[in-house]
């Protein structure tokens, strides 16, 4: 019985892990952080699936093996009140798993949130109901826009603020999300690693237009980025001058 149960659990876990890993969970990996988060996710899957499979297998096996059959209506099960050994085991094993996962997560957190190097490009992100404003200093002057442009493979720090209510600056492709909290500045640093356009989403309910508070970040090769920013700086200056 025990051997076949163990076999079922191992096989089912393997199948479960296989399926779960085969699912394409995440959007494109657009930053240096993304692969780390995705690996962490895979580790969580590998740890979680066997736990779920074990619980469900033992339960379904009990139901199959010991369900009340005709003629057993008056019977009771054996009066097993507990087992200290088992209870110790299923306290200690989860404790070890939890400790290991938490340690991994803490190290990962400190890694992905390491302080940015001096001179890192700063983008001021301002959330207002219901749009994102981005301010970047460039050689050609300050650039203000509703669309975000970033050069690929260059670290960037987002300083995030809000003028009205709480928003959350979420770029799924970057695996980063930070609240824009009125009254304080939050920040997040990473390096975009993939050229392309990615969604920016507001993830914190901010009122009527919350669902529509979306924008796009365009990651460009450095030369192209410079050209785009120069054009935008020119436009910003023109707008600023006309006021």
């Amino acid at each position: 019985m025990w051997v076949s149960l163990a076999a079922i659990i191992v096989v089912a876990s393997a199948i479960g892990i296989g399926i779960m890993l085969a699912i394409s969970w995440f959007p494109a990996q657009g930053s240096n952080v993304a692969p780390k988060i995705d690996t962490f996710w895979n580790v969580l899957i590998v740890v979680s699936v066997p736990i779920f499979v074990s619980v469900v297998t033992m339960m379904l096996f009990s139901i199959w093996r010991w369900r009340q059959r005709p003629g057993e209506e008056g019977l009771d099960g054996p009066p097993i009140h507990g087992s200290t050994k088992l209870e110790v085991i299923w306290t200690i094993i989860p404790t070890i798993i939890i400790a290991a996962l938490s340690t991994y997560a803490a190290i990962l957190l400190l890694d992905i949130q390491a302080a940015p190097a001096k001179g890192t490009r700063v983008v001021n992100v301002n959330g207002i109901q219901f749009a994102w404003n981005f301010e970047t200093k460039t050689d050609a002057g300050p650039v203000k826009s509703n669309l975000l442009y970033l050069p690929v493979n260059e670290p960037v720090t987002f300083d995030i603020r809000s003028k009205d209510v709480i928003h959350a600056f979420w770029v799924p492709a970057f695996r980063m999300q930070v609240d824009a909290v009125p009254g304080i500045t939050t920040s997040y640093s990473l390096t975009p690693t993939k050229v392309g356009s990615f969604d920016i989403v507001c993830a914190e309910l901010c009122g009527l237009g919350h669902a529509y508070m979306r924008s796009t970040v365009t990651v460009l090769p450095p030369a192209r980025y410079k050209a785009v920013m120069a054009g935008l700086a020119h436009a910003s200056a023109a707008v600023g001058g006309s006021k």
Partner: peptide, 30 residues
């Protein structure tokens, strides 16, 4: 806060495992 949150899984896990063990060798009226 991450650590304390994760620790809650331990008493909760104890409950789930104990329930499954309660089913073990019973006479289960489904």
């Amino acid at each position: 806060m991450m650590a304390t949150t994760a620790i809650i899984a331990i008493p909760t896990g104890i409950k789930i495992f104990s329930w499954v063990a309660t089913l073990w060798r019973g006479v289960l009226k489904m």
